[in-house]
Structures are given as C-alpha cells and as structure tokens.
Amino acid sequence: MAAAMAVAGERPGRPAGPGPGPGRGEEPFSPSVLGTREHWDAAYERELQTFQDIGDAGEIWFGEESMVRIIKWLEKQKVPHDSPVLDIGTGNGVLLIELAKSGYTNLTGIDYSPSAIQLSEKVREKEGMSDIKLKVEDFLAPSAELSGFEICIDKGTFDAISLNPDNAVGKRKQYVRSLCSVLKPEGFFLITSCNWTKEELLNEFREGFEILEELPTPKFCFGGRIGNSVTALVFQRKKVRPSILDKLD
C-alpha cells in the first residue's frame, strides 16, 4: 500500500503551506477512500491485470529518485547487506527489487492487499529475485514472526493510514506501536511522506524514536515561497532502557 495522493504540499481537508501541526488527538486530514483497504485491493487488482497483459509493474510511488535516496543513505551508513529490511506496504515490490540489485540480501515486503502481494510476486519472478520474502500482513496487526528488523522503510503507507475514515488517530498510534514491535532497538526507520511535514512527523513518532536526518527532496516554488512537496526522514528507535525490576534481578 502506498499513497502519493497530495500535490505540491496540498493536504486533503487542509490548506497548503506551512503552519502549525495537528495537536494531540486532533484529526489533521479529511477521511478519504485512499485510506481504505477496498481502494487498494481494487487498485492492485487492476495493476496485476495490467502486468499480466503487458508486463508493466505500475507506478513507482514518489518516483525513482525516492528509491535512489533510500539506497544512497543505506550505502552512506555502510549498512551491512545482510541486515534484515522490511518494506511496509510494499505494493508492487519494486523498491525491494532495487535493493536486491544493490546487493541487499535479507529483504521482506508486506502489504495488507493480497492483490499487491500477487503483483509483487509476479515482478519478483520476472526479475529473478526469488530470495525476496513477500507476505500478506496488516501492519496494524502484525504477526509474531514479523520482528527483528534492523531497517524499516515506508513510502506512503503512513500517509494512507492517516486518511482512513475509521479512527485514523487510533490507527496512527497503533502504527507506532507496531513499528516498535518489529524494529530492533537502535534500528533505522526511513519514511517518505507527501502529507506530513518534518515537524508533524517528529510529533507523530516522538514516542520511542529520535530523528537522525532529513533527506533532501525536490523543492517547489509557489507564490514566492519555497517548500517541499515530499518529506523524507530517518528515525532511529531509541535503546530500550532496563526497568528497575530488571536491575534488581
């Protein structure tokens, strides 16, 4: 699942441009079909049919530069190629293919849409990347086996969850809890968003995470003001501190 649904800083149900972020518990976006599983099931069923007809894997969310940006950061940090990597909302799985081509060998992609996983399996087969693991998983209710990752990547999935018509605030909080459960302490979380500013994402992930770096993204100019239509951040999960009871053991 991915959602490059906003243009040049516009946010559904909210004016474009800089401004104060949402308060705690406040709903920053109007509900949208883009936040529903039904929408993504239908979308990936169409893309799966298109792939079977003409071999087109579909859209690369946020463009090829978004994948290059992620891979360059991993290489800059000298992240070992065998580090466990999770692509949250993998969609057509193209990011995983590019990671595999760059030498990464322990790759997992999940999506709550079975059609998306079917599509990513077809793409994986076409590219001869049989070692990439693909699973139908709802990240808001991850299975117990989904754990121990050193890198988690999100390109638009948190955006889509934020538009869910059914308790989006609660789902965002569950997303953070799920992230804490699958990502190792001191592991890295790379998020690309078209709906959230840096300051807002810092607020959303304040529990359990600290910002490491903001990655450069394309800029636009409107009305004499320069801004970014996409935000890309790297967080690190905070080291788990032993409790007082642990110290007494």
Results as ranks from 00 to 15, higher is better:
residue 8 A to G: 10
residue 113 S to Q: 06
residue 15 P to W: 10
residue 167 N to W: 01
residue 44 Y to V: 00
residue 16 A to Q: 09
residue 211 I to L: 13
residue 244 I to L: 13
residue 61 W to P: 02
residue 54 I to T: 14
residue 206 R to A: 10
residue 181 S to Q: 14
residue 198 K to I: 04
residue 203 N to D: 09
residue 131 D to E: 12
residue 130 S to I: 08
residue 86 L to C: 07
residue 131 D to N: 13
residue 81 H to L: 11
residue 212 L to K: 14
residue 13 G to E: 12
residue 220 F to K: 13
residue 230 V to D: 03
residue 171 K to I: 02
residue 168 A to R: 15
residue 195 N to M: 06
residue 110 I to D: 03
residue 106 N to T: 06
residue 43 A to Y: 03
residue 187 G to C: 08
residue 117 I to G: 03
residue 180 C to E: 11
residue 73 W to F: 13
residue 120 S to F: 02
residue 92 N to L: 07
residue 220 F to C: 08
residue 146 L to T: 12
residue 147 S to F: 03
residue 86 L to R: 00
residue 147 S to I: 12
residue 58 G to S: 09
residue 197 T to D: 11
residue 53 D to P: 04
residue 77 Q to D: 06
residue 168 A to H: 11
residue 101 K to S: 11
residue 160 A to E: 10
residue 87 D to G: 04
residue 227 G to P: 06
residue 222 F to A: 15
residue 67 M to V: 08
residue 160 A to M: 08
residue 239 K to A: 13
residue 51 F to V: 09
residue 66 S to H: 04
residue 230 V to N: 03
residue 77 Q to M: 13
residue 137 E to N: 05
residue 24 R to K: 06
residue 54 I to E: 14
residue 232 A to K: 05
residue 72 K to D: 11
residue 159 D to N: 10
residue 185 P to M: 11
residue 72 K to E: 10
residue 167 N to Y: 03
residue 98 E to L: 08
residue 36 T to V: 06
residue 105 T to A: 15
residue 74 L to D: 04
residue 225 R to Y: 03
residue 22 P to R: 14
residue 243 S to F: 07
residue 167 N to C: 03
residue 102 S to K: 14
residue 153 I to D: 02
residue 108 T to K: 00
residue 163 L to W: 09
residue 219 K to D: 10
residue 14 R to P: 00
residue 121 E to T: 10
residue 54 I to A: 11
residue 139 F to N: 02
residue 138 D to C: 08
residue 198 K to Y: 03
residue 57 A to H: 11
residue 4 A to N: 12
residue 219 K to E: 15
residue 69 R to K: 09
residue 151 I to D: 01
residue 200 E to D: 11
residue 165 P to N: 06
residue 128 G to Y: 00
residue 125 E to K: 11
residue 97 I to D: 07
residue 12 P to Q: 12
residue 232 A to H: 11
residue 232 A to M: 07
residue 10 E to K: 15
residue 42 A to L: 10
residue 211 I to M: 11
residue 70 I to P: 01
residue 169 V to G: 06
residue 83 S to N: 07
residue 52 Q to E: 12
residue 150 E to S: 15
residue 198 K to C: 07
residue 237 R to D: 02
residue 243 S to Y: 11
residue 21 G to F: 01
residue 18 P to T: 15
residue 7 V to I: 12
residue 169 V to R: 15
residue 201 L to T: 14
residue 135 K to R: 14
residue 20 P to R: 14
residue 177 R to E: 12
residue 69 R to F: 02
residue 141 A to D: 12
residue 1 M to L: 09
residue 196 W to F: 09
residue 130 S to C: 05
residue 111 D to V: 01
residue 5 M to W: 05
residue 155 K to L: 07
residue 163 L to F: 06
residue 71 I to T: 13
residue 149 F to K: 01
residue 46 R to Q: 10
residue 95 L to H: 04
residue 216 P to S: 09
residue 249 D to E: 15
residue 173 K to M: 05
residue 145 E to T: 15
residue 46 R to G: 02
residue 19 G to K: 12
residue 165 P to H: 08
